[in-house]
Design a protein around this nucleic acid. Sequence first.
DNA 1: GTGCAGTGTAAAAATATTAGACGTTCTGCA
DNA 2: TGCAGAACGTCTAATATTTTTACACTGCAC
Lengths: 198, 198
Amino acid sequence: MNKYGTILVVDDNTAILTAMRYLLEETFTQVLTISSPDDIAKTMAQQPIDIVLLDMNFALGVNTGGEGLFWLRSIRKLHPQTPVVLMTAYADINLAVKGLKYGAADFITKPWDNDELVRKLKDVLDMQNEIVSLDEMEKEHIRRTIDHCHGNLTRAAELLGITRQTLYNKMKRLSGENHENSLSNGQDVKESDKDKRL
Amino acid sequence: MNKYGTILVVDDNTAILTAMRYLLEETFTQVLTISSPDDIAKTMAQQPIDIVLLDMNFALGVNTGGEGLFWLRSIRKLHPQTPVVLMTAYADINLAVKGLKYGAADFITKPWDNDELVRKLKDVLDMQNEIVSLDEMEKEHIRRTIDHCHGNLTRAAELLGITRQTLYNKMKRLSGENHENSLSNGQDVKESDKDKRL
DNA sequence: GTGCAGTGTAAAAATATTAGACGTTCTGCA
DNA sequence: TGCAGAACGTCTAATATTTTTACACTGCAC
C-alpha cells in the first residue's frame, strides 16, 4: 500500500494531537505533531512535509480564527506547494471562505468524523499529485483566455504574449492532442506526417 | 469610470431581484435578473455574462443548497471562465467549502451588506481580469512542479512532458525575464545578442 | 568497486515562433 | 447603404526553441 508521506498536525490541545497520532499513523508514513504554531517554520525547514493539518484557534479566548489565518499565510508563503487543511471547532462560514481563499486545501470542523478526515486528507494529496503537462496547462490557459476575450483571437494572443499566428498553431496542435493521455510505454506513435505537405 | 460589464442575478425571491437591480445598476453596465435557474443556460447562451450571482436555495423547504450546487456545476461546465458568486441565507460551512471547491469565486451570506457585496463582486472581476502571459504561467507551473519533485529535475521534466534539456533552457530563459513586465510601447529592446556566440 | 540515477553540457536536426505581408470578412457607424 | 477599422485566415523567410543523441561527472546503494 502506498502510504501518504509525512503529515504535520498543529493544535494546542495535546489530547487532540494524541488522538490524531493514533488515527493518522495508519495512513501516513510519519505523523508529526506540534502544539505551538511557532514551531511550524522550524519543523518544516528540518524535513519535507507533505501536508499540514492546522487548527485555527490558538490563543485561548480568541476565537476569530485570525491566528490560524496568520499561520496559514505564513505556511503558504514559505511552502506554497504544501497543502494545508484547516480545522476549527467554531464553524464560521467567513473563516472557511477566507481560509480557502488564502490557499487552504480543505476545511474540517470539530468534532470531526475519523473516516471523513482521513478521506479528505487523502483526497487533497491525491489531487495535488496530479501535475499536468505543460501542454495541458497551456491548452487550458489558452482556452480560458480566448473565452475571456469573447473569442477575439487577436486580443487573446496579445494577452498571452504571443503572436496571432502562434496562437493559431497552438490551437490547431493542441486540439488534436486530447485523446493521448498518454504515459506511453515506449510505443511512440508518430503521426507527424498526416498533412506535412498538401 | 470603467463599469463592470454584465451581471446575472439568479434568485427565486423577486423582491431580492429588485433590490439587486437597484444596488448593482450603479456598478454594472447591465443587470440581468432571473427567478428560475432553468433559464440560466438560455440567458447565458444569448449574451456574454461577465459574472453570476447565484442563490443556493431554490426549492422551497429544501435548504441543503444541493440545488444551488447543481446549478453552479452546470454553469461551470458550460462557461468555465465565468465567475460565480454564491449566496445563501443559511450559513453552512460545508456548503461554502463545497461551493468554493466546485469553482465558485466567492460566497456571500444573507442578509448581505451592500458595500461588501459590491466590493466582493468587483474584486472577483478585477482578479479574473488578470490574464497572465503564457510565459508567466509556464514559469509558475514549472516552479511548482520542480518543488513538487523535491528538486529532481529529471522527474519534473517527465511530469511536464518535456525533455530535461528543454527544462534547463526554460529555467535559464524564464529566470532572466522577470524584470520586463513589459507592455512595451514600441520600444523593443532586443538583447538577443548577449551570448549568441561564445 | 560497480551499476544506477541524477546532473550538467554540447551539437545537429527537427520544429515552432516571429515579423511582415496580403486579401477577405465582419461590424459599427455615418 | 457604404465606408473605415478591426479581426480573420493564410503565407513566407528569418530566428529561436526543442528534440535527439551523446558524453563526462557525482553521489549512493549493494
